[in-house]
Write a protein that binds this DNA or RNA. Structure first.
Lengths: 194, 194
DNA sequence: TGCCTACCTGGCACTGAGTGCCAACCAGGC
DNA sequence: GCCTGGTTGGCACTCAGTGCCAGGTAGGCA
């Protein structure tokens, strides 16, 4: 982890402040309708400085997604060694929890994510990084040969598990929270193995 | 289908010419390194006119992907009624054939697609449209209730079938064509039901 | 105390994608 | 010959994102 110097703490505070401000604007006027100039102005920083904290506008919304992927990887590696890889993946994904906002806000943010094309695209892009980070462990469990061009079992399992999570997320956003995300995820995953 | 007036035929010819020219530039200098100004100049049209044929640079590469989705939908609807939905999806995807370029070029284009972030993102976006278009038929076969927020079986099946195709495509591009795409797709799909 | 270094900041200029608007053009129908 | 629908190029604009530079500020050190 990054050591907690004064610099880093200040930086983190500014980062959080920008994210908070921007999210408020997004929820009030929509993601696409909010320009980076507006965010910078509202957060009291220059446009140029904004890009020192966030590479793109999308990163504000999807910031902690990479961290969640690491959570899933750690959880997967903690699953018992003999467990069926697909089951292990399913269980590992239950370790992912959203704590950034309260339930109502989380629903709004999720809906925004699935409805805004550029956000949706970046979201999936981050999932591709999850895939890369989970792949080695699933390969190990399958005793798969990474050099065999025909053996795509590990890739397929990981990618489809993530896809199920995505399907569940979209259904959750549409359902207005009538059902829980883990419930939906299990329902999606079960559909593949009747 | 659009009726074949003189206007439409001319328009189609220009469209094809732009696509051909642009693809040549992409393969020669890379997708991101090629600007729209360069494409327009090489194709002998104005920058403004380019955007009347293609909404984005990515659409040049992914142009016929929507048509392929329709191909898959038609093939799915033609599968026998009693067939297991997952099997029907698998078989339907075998109807998708690439005929746009010769094998070697197709490999290069595919590799470019998987390696360029913006292309990859749009590619997945198009796949989301496939999902929407295939969903009703799979729901019908599952006798699924579209209003039940917990029933995500159809979504999961369609999305994962597409994901398998995507996994297969990436593996194919990486393998330099050592194995065929249908082979890889079957291998990926089989991994989910051992 | 004063200097040096590291890091941050705002501002400016630039590229490149994508859009709105307008004046000009051209083929076919009446 | 005129009208109409569709097209074209050009101009100006917005917005995202990057490179560069000059200035500030905190902390370490002599």
């Amino acid at each position: 982890m990054t050591e907690q110097t004064l610099w880093n703490r200040t930086r983190q505070a500014v980062y959080d402040e920008i994210a908070r401000t921007a999210m408020g604007l997004f929820l009030a006027h929509g993601f696409e309708a909010t320009t980076i100039d507006e965010i910078a102005k509202a957060a009291g920083i220059s446009r140029r400085s904004f890009f020192r904290y966030f590479g793109t506008k999308e990163d504000i919304v999807l910031g902690d997604l990479a961290a969640k992927g690491e959570l899933a990887r750690v959880a997967l590696e903690a699953r018992p060694d003999g467990e069926d890889p697909w089951t292990a993946l399913r269980q590992a994904f239950h370790a992912i929890k959203d704590v950034a906002y309260d339930g109502e806000t989380m629903l709004k943010v999720t809906r925004m994510m699935y409805e805004t094309p550029s956000l949706r695209a970046r979201h999936i892009e981050k999932h591709l990084q999850w895939q890369a980070s989970l792949l080695p462990e699933v390969r190990r469990r399958l005793r798969a040969d990474a050099t065999d061009p025909l053996d795509v079992r590990a890739e397929a399992l990981v990618a489809c598990a993530i896809t199920c999570l995505d399907v569940a997320g979209e259904a959750w956003a549409r359902s207005n929270g009538a059902v829980t995300l883990p419930e939906l995820f299990d329902s999606a995953a079960a559909a593949l193995r009747p």
